[in-house]
């Protein structure tokens, strides 16, 4: 291993920011799912997007 067990045991504070950010986006995702958005996303994704291809 490139780092000694002493290094790995060294205390660093736990970063709280990810544990705030991730739940915020989880709630956002749940709101989107509750409004039925995934069905609309699927409807769009299974059609050929002419804009993506460059002809529409």
């Amino acid at each position: 291993m490139s780092q000694t067990s002493h290094d790995l045991r060294k205390k660093r504070p736990i970063r709280k920011a990810p544990f705030v950010v991730i739940p915020i986006f989880l709630i956002l995702w749940m709101i989107g799912v509750a409004t039925g958005e995934p069905a609309r996303v699927l409807e769009q994704a299974i059609q050929v997007c002419l804009s993506c291809i460059g002809i529409g």
Binding site: F25, I27, L28, W29, G32, E37
Partner: peptide, 19 residues
């Protein structure tokens, strides 16, 4: 009456971004 603001998509890539 459909509130399709992109929340499910922003939510998904936001979770990925947060991770």
């Amino acid at each position: 009456g459909q509130y399709y603001f992109g929340f499910s998509v922003f939510g998904t890539i936001g979770i990925l971004g947060g991770l």
